[in-house]
Each structure stands twice: as C-alpha cells, then as structure tokens.
C-alpha cells in the first residue's frame, strides 16, 4: 500500500521551544471544478479537515476547501513544555480517515 500520510516532528526539543511540524497527505483533493473528457464535472473529493493533538489536546485545526492544492501540505509551529505525543488526523466528507503520531522528548 502506498504511504499516504507523511509527518515531520523533531524527536527532541528544549523546554519552551517553538518547534515546526509538517504534514503532507497524498491525495488528489479533487476540487469539483474540473471536467473529465466527456464534459462531465468530476465529483468533489476533498479531505478537508486536519487536526493536530498534543497529549490528547487540540493545538491546531485546519479546514481546507477546494482552493487547496492536491497533496495538501501544512506547516505550523507549536511551543512544547513537556514530552508527549503529537497525533495528526486527516478526515474527509466520506469515511476517509488518516492518522499518524510522533513522540517528542522535551528536556
């Protein structure tokens, strides 16, 4: 199976540091604007909701509409005060769900 969800989280950080997190999902994000060869509009297929949780608490959320490029990519910053696990969740209108988690050691 093709790896769809990519995340990048530093494994170590200092207390109170602002770290950069990146995530990318391999997905066509069909906008619903495009036509196929027979002139029919291709149906929308978006994975439009992204949530990042740190130790079970939401730190960042994004709602992406059709103006987002395919293979959606997000980069954002989080200040870490304690060690913990980042959980990245992508979800679409259907039952598409993608999850990945990464641990950061804070000292």
């Amino acid at each position: 199976m093709v790896k769809r969800l990519h995340i990048k989280v530093p494994s170590r950080a200092g207390k109170g540091d602002v770290i950069r997190l990146m995530t990318k999902l391999n997905h066509p994000m069909e906008s619903g604007w495009r036509q196929s060869h027979d002139g029919q509009l291709r149906p929308r297929d978006l994975v439009g909701e992204f949530t990042c949780l740190f130790n079970g608490k939401e730190v960042f959320r994004a709602e992406l509409d059709s103006g987002t490029a395919s293979d959606p990519y997000l980069s954002f910053h989080v200040r870490v005060e304690e060690s913990g696990v980042f959980l990245f969740q992508w979800g679409g209108a259907g039952d598409e769900r993608y999850e990945a988690e990464a641990r950061v050691e804070v000292r």
């Binding site: 608490k57 960042f60 994004a62 059709s66 987002t68 990519y73 997000l74 910053h77």
Partner: peptide, 20 residues
C-alpha cells in the same frame, strides 16, 4: 481556501500550505 484555528499552544502564528 482554508481556515486555520490556532490554540494558545501554538508558539508562533505562522502557517504554510499550498493553494490553487
């Protein structure tokens, strides 16, 4: 295009993405 909701744990209000 997109809406980003930040919590106070975000140390820096800076977001990057790719748009159409």
């Amino acid at each position: 295009v997109a809406s980003f909701y930040l919590s106070r744990a975000i140390g820096k209000a800076e977001v990057s993405t790719r748009i159409r």
